[in-house]
Simulated scan of single mutants.
Amino acid sequence: MKKIVLFAIVALGCMLAGVSCAEDDLNPNSVIVEVTSEPTPLDAWLYDNFVTPYNIEFAYRYQDMESDMTYNLTPASYEKAVQMAKLVRHLCLQSYDEITGSEEFIRNYFPKMIYLVGSPAYNNNGTVILGTAEGGTKITLYAVNRMDPTDVDLLNEWYFKTIHHEFAHILHQTKPYSTDFDQITGTSETSRYVGNACWDVYATESAALKAGFISRYAATSADEDFVELISIYVTNTAATWSSKLSTAGTTGRSMIEEKFEIAYKYMQNEWNIDLDQLREVVLRRQAEVPSMDLDTL
């Protein structure tokens, strides 16, 4: 008897399901709406000045999938995106074009995406992320909405030193630098790589210089040390570089100069780039920024 009742209930359920399916037709329209945007004058300019010559995407519209979801971030404004695009082209891409004699170097080795974020990315320890690079394929620049195009020093500190830094990572990952570089900085308490503790171990830039690092962040690892030397050198005047070496003192200066000699020869021998000439080009182009029209495409 129990089995008969069970079968009857199952049969009734099937009948009701059949009726329900017959009455509720599926809506042919998808609930997923693709976000679209109208092309802008900047899109056309980017195609001509980034995509065509370099095969680089300059992404200024906010995209969740390209953003670090651990931070509260805001989009870059259109006006700041225009300014940043023109500055990146003038100060970075064309600097390497000029020193190498063609667009091929950037086309072959530079990351294929530059992604802009309007707001800074703050860490819990109070530090701010200026830029990140992912597997040599993308550079993300933060705090674009705070950019002052008339302040060249700030442009370097927040953006262009970062771009040279991340690009140097790609170069040494493509062609490794000498392992002699790693041996210069010892493991003593006064001169050692300390990972992310660099901000605590070296409380000031002067302390890092005296320990043989061109910056506090250079104390993170040998790779960071290597690219900091290159990026800081090419974005600063000879007087600024000399001042840093003077602050480093006898011991710190000796270590920095020994490491820089390896970095200098590496760029010259592996990539045919003279860092003195590159710095000259970068500094000249920096001096041109105040007279540039950064708002008109």
Rank of each mutant, 00 (worst) to 15 (best):
Y202C: 14
D180P: 12
R192I: 02
H164T: 02
K138Q: 12
N125I: 08
Y142N: 07
G135Y: 05
H164K: 07
F167L: 05
Y142A: 08
S178T: 13
D200S: 07
V144Y: 01
I184G: 02
I184E: 03
N125C: 02
N125T: 08
H172E: 08
D151S: 02
T187A: 14
L155S: 01
F167W: 09
Y142W: 04
H169E: 11
A133C: 09
V128Q: 14
T132M: 08
T179G: 03
S188Y: 02
T185N: 13
D182V: 06
H164C: 13
A197S: 15
N124L: 00
Q183K: 06
L155N: 03
D153W: 09
I184P: 00
G186Y: 10
A133S: 12
Y193L: 00
T190C: 01
V152A: 04
L130W: 04
T132Y: 02
H172Q: 13
E189Q: 12
L130I: 11
G135H: 10
H165M: 14
K138T: 07
V194D: 03
E189K: 15
Y202V: 04
W158C: 11
V194E: 09
P149W: 11
K138A: 09
R146K: 05
D200F: 09
P149Y: 14
W158K: 13
V201I: 15
G195S: 10
S178C: 01
I170G: 08
G126V: 14
W199Y: 15
Y159R: 06
F160W: 08
P176M: 00
T132E: 05
T150C: 12
N145D: 10
D151V: 00
F160P: 03
T179D: 12
W158R: 08
N156P: 00
T140Q: 06
